[in-house]
Amino acid sequence: MPVWDIIGPVMIGPSSSHTAGAVRIGRIVRLCWGGDVRNANIYMRGSFATTGEGHGTDRALLAGLLGYAPDDPEVRNGRELALKSGMNFNFYEEDLECAHPNSVRIEIRDDGGRRMDATAASLGGGAVSLQELDGFEVGVSCLLPVIIIMNRDVHGVVGAVTTYLSSHGINIATMKLHRNSRGGLATMVLELDINESAVRPEEVKKVHDAIVRVISIPGVAL
């Protein structure tokens, strides 16, 4: 951790994990969704559920879902702003044995039936981890730009994607592969060493027929 992470982040109090981290989680989930959030069910786990209200975790998550940054004073008015924006939201408590002690699951849907389910944990000092997306393990801090590719499990997809990135001069920092079953749905999670604007999700989607969905998340600084 370099000195600027020790003297920082600049944030709305009172807690780097329960407030600043919660705003970052909301922002990251919004970026995964790719637009305004109209309906959100928010399931608080562990100490997010038990001490979250006193730390403004609810407001922080909503402010993040609206796109605010952890140092924006409007974080305090997260609930009011969400209501004003027309967002429908509900908070629940979720008690899971295996859940991270500071974590949350957010379920988003639009009126047309599209849904997304994201789980994220706050790790302290404002750092977070996007743990799961639509049931698939992701495990990224989102400090670097990330692309998540969901595809049918057929041969050649990884090759097509890495060839595309290579031809655009993009270095892969980390890469994880998962699949739910042989020939079923697979995911590829890549952290990249570049400015995310260099990656066009719609172009990545075209590199192989088996790719169902591409999510691009820009790096979200602490």
């Binding site: 020790i6 003297i7 920082g8 982040p9 600049v10 944030m11 709305i12 109090g13 009172p14 780097s16 407030t19 600043a20 403004g56 140092d71 004073p73 974080v75 305090r76 000092g125 404002g126």
Partner: peptide, 8 residues
């Protein structure tokens, strides 16, 4: 009270 501070 949810003021803006520098965590330090």
């Amino acid at each position: 009270s949810m003021g803006r501070i520098v965590a330090a």
